[in-house]
Design a protein around this nucleic acid. Structure first.
Lengths: 92, 92
DNA sequence: ACTTTATTTCGGTATTTTCCTAAATAACGA
DNA sequence: TCGTTATTTAGGAAAATACCGAAATAAAGT
């Protein structure tokens, strides 16, 4: 779960997730939305993949990234467990 | 909002928030839950305060920290805006 | 086989974060 | 005022993160 919060900590990565809300996108199409070098974006993709927030699938010469909703929902649940009134599910 | 996600990125800070769920606690009482030097914890408190996730109040010789629910709820809303099906509130 | 396109891995630098010890500040009680 | 307790600020070292350009890999078309 720490991986998820680490991933969410960077604005670029949060924006990537938002972009993916509209459906799967290739690394290149995603990169076009940022003023950063491709390798830099590639690094961000890796962080998101490590956190399991996105999955990747090779489609010929391009690579498609797509949101992994279930993990995002887990992060939501973890946050809720902090907001939630009484102690219960620790170790997040 | 970026400050909030930065603050949430560290496990110790998330645990501090959870501890505060049970009610306000002094810096010292919080520190007792960790194997870290007091100044280190003090730094974490500052990060949480900067993100407005906690407030502090001097009580004689001790300082009481307490959760700021409203900001935590904003973070929750920001996460929801990523999970949420269709594009709407960008810039998180 | 060669070239092109899409993407990642490598090597390295700059910045940020985390943590520590020592010293400073704040409030209190004797 | 002096000493004690609680906490923060200062200064600095080590590790992690973010970024880039150059080179490597993968798939496809010619």
């Amino acid at each position: 779960m720490s991986d998820v919060f680490d991933a969410l900590a960077h604005p670029v990565r949060r924006k990537i997730l938002k972009l993916l809300r509209g459906g799967a996108m290739s690394a290149g199409d995603l990169a076009a939305h940022f003023d950063l070098a491709k390798p830099t974006l590639s690094g961000h993709f890796t962080v998101l993949k490590t956190a399991d927030l996105v999955t990747s699938e090779r489609r010929g010469t391009t690579i498609l990234y797509r949101l992994n909703m279930s993990v995002l929902e887990e992060a939501l649940a973890a946050l809720m467990s902090i907001v939630g009134s009484k102690p219960s599910g620790e170790e997040t």
